[in-house]
Computed example of a mutant assay.
Amino acid sequence: MISLTLDKARISRATLLRLISAVGSAAVFGMLTASLTPAAYWPSAFALAFIYGFFFVGGTGYRILIAVAFQDTSRKASASWSGATTATALAALTASLLIAQQESALLVIAAYAAAINFAYIPVKFACLEAGCCQAQRRDPFLIRGHDLRRVEIAASVAVLSVALTMIWIGAFDVAAILGVGGHLAIRLLSRWSRNRLPGSGLEDEIKGQELLPLALLLAVAIWMTAVLQS
């Protein structure tokens, strides 16, 4: 009975942490980008947070939606962090390319970088609660004898701090490049350590779908920065 109660509490905490990840990252994105609209700040922040949250939650649940649509119980129907990252990265990429002013576009990318790094922190705490996403192999420099999930949390806090500081001082280009590039590096380390890079592990799984959108977003940020400085 005690074990069952503890299990329920652990599941509840993990679920709460994932909820904080989704809601918190949407709030971060909305508040950082609200100044780009001509409307009042808080209604704009709420609307932009809702749009971000739509893509985040939709990306997270795409496996579940596919399984329900095809009514196939053999399909893996767990929530997908990679799907959330992919959907929001593609949305941010599209928005940045549609915005005429490149400085504003860089702010969108920088805000996305801050939001996705923020989201990753409670997600990894949820992994600690659930006992999942542990390293299968270790590099001699970063992970070594440390817990991979704690390394990811520390790295995400560092990248988030840098991104927010750069946004605060108006260096949107630096925030965008370091924020997106930092998260991409964290994701690559995580996938390499867990043997989940594209082409590795089980062949019936789609792995690393978030890497290309993040790389494209980073490339766009670098390109826009180069154009502004030329």
Rank of each mutant, 00 (worst) to 15 (best):
G208T: 10
W42E: 09
L228T: 00
A67R: 13
A110P: 11
T37I: 11
M1P: 09
A84K: 06
V162Q: 04
L65G: 07
S80N: 00
A111C: 09
G24C: 03
G182A: 04
R138M: 03
G58Y: 09
A226N: 06
T86E: 08
Q136L: 15
Q71L: 13
S80H: 01
L160W: 02
A219M: 08
L228N: 04
Y52N: 01
Q229V: 12
L17D: 00
I143W: 01
R194D: 04
L228V: 00
H146F: 14
I186N: 12
A89K: 01
C133E: 14
I206T: 14
L32G: 05
G208E: 02
L216D: 03
A79F: 14
I143A: 01
T5S: 02
Q136S: 07
F50E: 06
A219W: 03
A219C: 07
S190R: 03
R150F: 10
P38N: 05
F54S: 11
L164A: 06
L142G: 01
A158W: 05
Q101L: 10
V159N: 04
P213Q: 04
L188Y: 08
T33L: 02
A105M: 06
A215S: 13
S74V: 09
L6T: 04
G53Q: 07
W81Q: 06
A226S: 09
I64D: 02
I99E: 13
S156K: 01
W168Y: 15
L189M: 13
G145N: 14
N117H: 10
A27Q: 04
D147W: 03
R150G: 01
L148W: 01
G182Q: 03
N195M: 10
S156Y: 01
L17P: 01
I11C: 03
I64A: 09
A130L: 13
Q71V: 08
S80Q: 00
F118L: 10
L16R: 03
V162H: 04
F125S: 07
I99V: 15
W42A: 13
P43S: 02
A26F: 01
F54W: 07
P122E: 02
N117C: 13
V28L: 05
G61Q: 04
G30R: 03
S193C: 00
L97H: 07
A87P: 08
L228G: 03
A91S: 10
L160Q: 03
F56C: 11
K207H: 08
Q209D: 08
D72L: 06
I109T: 10
D204Y: 14
I109E: 04
E203V: 13
T94S: 14
M31G: 08
S200H: 11
G61T: 07
M166N: 10
A9F: 14
I167K: 07
Y41V: 10
F125A: 14
F172W: 13
A40W: 06
A221V: 00
L4G: 05
A215R: 02
S96N: 05
T94Y: 09
Q102V: 11
A79R: 06
L106P: 06
A69T: 12
A27C: 10
I20G: 00
L184D: 06
V157G: 02
S230A: 13
E203R: 14
E103G: 12
Q101I: 07
Q102M: 09
A27S: 11
I121A: 12
A40L: 14
